[in-house]
């Protein structure tokens, strides 16, 4: 029986993130999910890239690898295919996952690699000082869009859904019980499990866009969330600037790459 404490290196705390940063909430949810699933720590691999969230590798009591910026899912693909028994968790910010690594995201989802991908979307590059990313909303102020951003952003969950991922969920970082549930479901799904967590960067994005302190910023993010069931009855205008949350995709009709490839191996060796 593993407990929460088996998955964390408590001696490494306090962590390096700013006060009110959602990254800690995601870390906490992940560790609780691991304990709930009773996955032996040595079977877990945590893969990150660059940026604030990537520093997460310091805290779990599991093997970890920091890939290069954006290459999280590409590295994870190799890990999972080489040893399908491993549980591979890919933790990315919106820079890693949606922007520099966007190409790997769509292909990993399309190939249906059996890993759990969590994008902690805080709408900007925190580590480098609050520049805009591919998820920064139109008009937002960042250190590289001082007059307001003139680019449209990605709808991450819809993008991954369109790529054919069998499991997609989205929630706010404060929606902690659902977050943990989604991590567990995404992990247990045979195939690409994707969760977008809407999170707060109080230090940069919050400050630049006058969103107040951590609780205020979290509340504003919560107010942007619309549960999928409610969104069904809303018009496009009403949904502008909103994020549809909940379990958005849960399919069992898709075969993951590893399973398909194993079938191929068996067929060619039988010949």
């Amino acid at each position: 029986m593993y407990t929460y404490n088996d998955y964390i290196k408590e001696e490494k705390l306090p962590h390096i993130w700013c006060a009110g940063c959602g990254n800690g909430i995601v870390l906490n949810a992940l560790l609780h999910a691991l304990a709930d699933m009773q996955i032996p720590p040595e079977e877990v691999v945590i893969v990150t890239g660059s940026g604030c969230l990537a520093r997460l590798v310091t805290y779990p009591n599991t093997s970890t690898i920091k890939m290069l910026h954006g290459r999280v899912l590409a590295g994870a693909t190799g890990i999972k295919l080489a040893n399908p028994n491993l549980k591979v968790f890919c933790l990315m910010g919106d820079g890693d996952g949606a922007t520099i690594g966007g190409n790997h995201l769509i292909h990993c989802a399309r190939r249906n690699i059996d890993v759990t991908a969590i994008i902690c979307n805080n709408f900007n590059y925190g580590m480098t000082g609050g520049q805009y990313s591919a998820t920064t909303p139109y008009g937002a102020i960042t250190t590289t869009s001082r007059y307001g951003l003139v680019e449209e952003n990605f709808n991450m969950a819809e993008l991954v859904k369109a790529c054919g991922a069998p499991y997609v969920a989205r929630c706010s970082a404060t929606d902690v019980l659902n977050l943990r549930k989604y991590i567990i479901e995404a992990t247990q799904k045979k195939g690409f499990g994707f969760i977008e967590v809407l999170s707060a960067c109080v230090t940069h994005y919050g400050k630049n866009n006058k969103m107040g302190d951590a609780p205020n910023m979290m509340r504003q993010i919560d107010s942007m969330c619309v549960p999928a069931a409610r969104a069904k009855n809303m018009t496009e205008e009403e949904l502008a600037g909103k994020y549809i949350t909940g379990k958005l995709v849960d399919r069992n009709d898709l075969i993951d790459f590893g399973t398909s490839y194993q079938r191929l191996r068996e067929e060619v060796t039988a010949k």
């Binding site: 954006g70 590295g75 190799g78 295919l81 292909h107």
Partner: peptide, 26 residues
């Protein structure tokens, strides 16, 4: 595949070597 191995064609060269690194780590 005949010797129990894996071939994968990745989306670019960065992904290719990243995946090779991942396999090696595993």
């Amino acid at each position: 595949p005949k010797v129990g191995g894996t071939f994968i064609q990745m989306e670019d060269e960065m992904a290719s070597l990243a995946a090779v690194e991942g396999a090696s780590c595993a």
